[in-house]
Simulated assay, not measured.
Amino acid sequence: MTAHLITGAGSGIGAAVTERLAGRGDELWLLARDAGRAKELQQRYPGARTVVGDLAHPEKLSWAFGHQELPDRLDSLLHIAGVVELGAIGGTTPKGWNAQLAANLVSPAELTRLMLPQLRVAHGHVVFVNSGAGLRANAEWGAYAASKHGLKALADSLRLEEHDTGVRVTSVYPGRTATPMQADVHRQEGKMYDESRWIDPSSVAVTILAALDLPRDAEVTDLSVRPGR
């Protein structure tokens, strides 16, 4: 059975991906920030396994994983969780920088490091759900864009380092998608939120699964998804 470890399974793109993988009977390991969230995910996805670890504290992930059961092999590691806090460079404190860098960059790097042995066994696939902000930075998006530019660099380096092990690496760059995070971004921007203007999370999920299901003789390295209306 194909096994996946997914971050961000509770909402948005992560939930859309998890629902599709669950629907086809794959083995799911879902990262939860705490025991309460783990219980919620287990109720939502019967049969799924949970692993507790807080992406806000990447330095604690190794200890946390050392006290829990983990998969013996892993066909994919899907980094979908993320946080965003808008603000001008002149007004963003080290705390603001560190919060976004920890969740969006350092934790994906650490989680990948911890799961690489299982991924190598399965000749697995690491997917980083990045953002359009990982390709360009706009005003008020400096800290978030920096974390996502760093995530692109992480993926590009990992792809070269793991090529001979058979581990594939894909970066996905969705445009604005109708998720709870997008609603929060609009609130921060002081704009009205109309989810019908943006990409449905299930459309991004389709592209992610297409990359996962690609035959072994090929690899999708970078994939941009933009609103079509």
Rank of each mutant, 00 (worst) to 15 (best):
120 R>N: 05
103 A>K: 02
168 R>F: 07
23 G>E: 06
211 A>V: 01
219 E>C: 13
107 S>M: 02
15 A>S: 12
114 L>N: 09
145 A>L: 07
122 A>P: 05
144 Y>D: 00
82 G>H: 05
159 R>C: 09
178 A>Y: 03
9 A>L: 11
118 Q>A: 15
46 P>A: 10
68 Q>M: 12
133 A>H: 06
177 T>K: 03
43 Q>C: 07
116 L>I: 12
69 E>K: 11
56 A>I: 00
103 A>G: 05
73 R>I: 00
179 T>L: 10
213 D>L: 05
1 M>I: 09
153 A>W: 02
103 A>I: 02
90 G>F: 08
2 T>P: 15
15 A>C: 02
80 I>A: 08
209 L>C: 07
128 F>K: 00
109 A>Q: 04
71 P>I: 10
38 A>D: 05
46 P>I: 10
21 L>T: 03
69 E>W: 01
88 A>Y: 11
156 D>C: 01
154 L>G: 07
127 V>A: 03
188 Q>C: 12
89 I>Q: 08
66 G>E: 10
151 L>H: 10
135 L>C: 09
228 G>K: 06
145 A>C: 12
193 Y>N: 14
197 R>M: 13
103 A>E: 08
78 L>V: 13
78 L>W: 01
33 R>F: 07
117 P>M: 13
161 E>Q: 11
86 L>S: 05
226 R>Y: 13
140 E>Y: 10
44 R>E: 11
57 H>I: 02
11 S>G: 06
71 P>F: 05
31 L>G: 05
201 P>R: 03
103 A>M: 03
37 R>G: 13
73 R>H: 14
121 V>P: 00
